[in-house]
Simulated assay, not measured.
Amino acid sequence: MNISLIPSVEHIKEEELKDKVVIVIDVLRATSVIVTALANGAKEVIPVLEIEDALELKSDMELLGGERKGLKIDGFDLSNSPLEYTREMVEGRSIIMTTTNGTRALHKAKEGDKIYIGAVINGVSAAKKASDEKKDMAIICAGTYGKFSLDDFLCAGKIIYEVLKRGEYELDDFAAAAYMAYRDNKHDLISYVKMAKHCKYLISIGLEEDIKYCFTEDIADVVPEYRDGVIKL
């Protein structure tokens, strides 16, 4: 079995995902939000591409969540901070989400056989769920504005590290580099990830606590799945 790592949404070739298990990562912060929301009892997350799409779908029973340039969208109930998606806020609710990078990656992953949501906070569980499929695996880093992002790379390395505990896989070179980056820095992920341009930007707008949360390992044991336009457990 093989693991390929895709460096950003712009590098996704949809036909190459067919018959593969896909894990989508946008660790800062969309996939961390999705995992948190569903772990806290949200009914589902519906990812859409545009703000207008979200506003059109909104009903009284649904929450709007997301960001542009890291900031809450005017008229939305929630930003893209996982710390806002508490059980009190989201339990039993549907969440319509649009983000700059993560929701684009999800839509482009649609050809995968199974599409799972990965983050540092559910890394062990995501690795187990994906490896249980006994298929070739593609891990998608959403990236930042279409470019490679160090934070997603490190998260991918964690998941690959955990997958390799469960079976033998051939890694492409990019997957191998991510694996080694995590292996060699797992004692202090925050120091490593703070070198990322996107991470520096989030700190500059006051979101350092989000980063700390998103790089807290394995505090969630749920693995959301994206199917037919909806993310559920």
Rank of each mutant, 00 (worst) to 15 (best):
N101R: 11
E168K: 14
M1F: 07
M61E: 14
G65W: 03
S191N: 14
A54S: 08
A220S: 14
D19T: 01
A105D: 12
D77V: 02
S125D: 11
R183D: 10
I3N: 03
K194P: 03
N101Q: 11
S59N: 15
I231N: 01
A156Q: 07
I139P: 00
T216C: 13
A196P: 04
E111T: 04
L171K: 10
I211L: 15
M89N: 14
K212L: 15
K20A: 02
I117W: 08
S4K: 13
K232S: 14
L202S: 03
F153L: 14
K58V: 05
A142T: 04
D221E: 15
K72H: 09
N80W: 11
G65M: 04
G123E: 05
H198W: 07
H11P: 00
I211K: 01
M61N: 14
E225C: 13
K58T: 02
A127T: 05
K13N: 14
K212E: 15
L49V: 10
I219F: 11
L207A: 08
T144R: 12
V124N: 14
E62F: 04
E67W: 03
E67F: 11
S149M: 05
Y226S: 06
R166Y: 04
I6Y: 10
T100D: 13
E16A: 09
G167H: 09
N122F: 10
G65Q: 03
E111A: 15
N40C: 09
D53V: 00
C155R: 07
G206N: 06
I51K: 14
T31C: 07
D173W: 02
G66Q: 04
T103L: 13
L64E: 01
S94N: 12
S81A: 05
E50F: 13
E209T: 05
I6G: 05
I159V: 15
V48T: 00
V120H: 05
R29N: 01
S131D: 08
H107I: 11
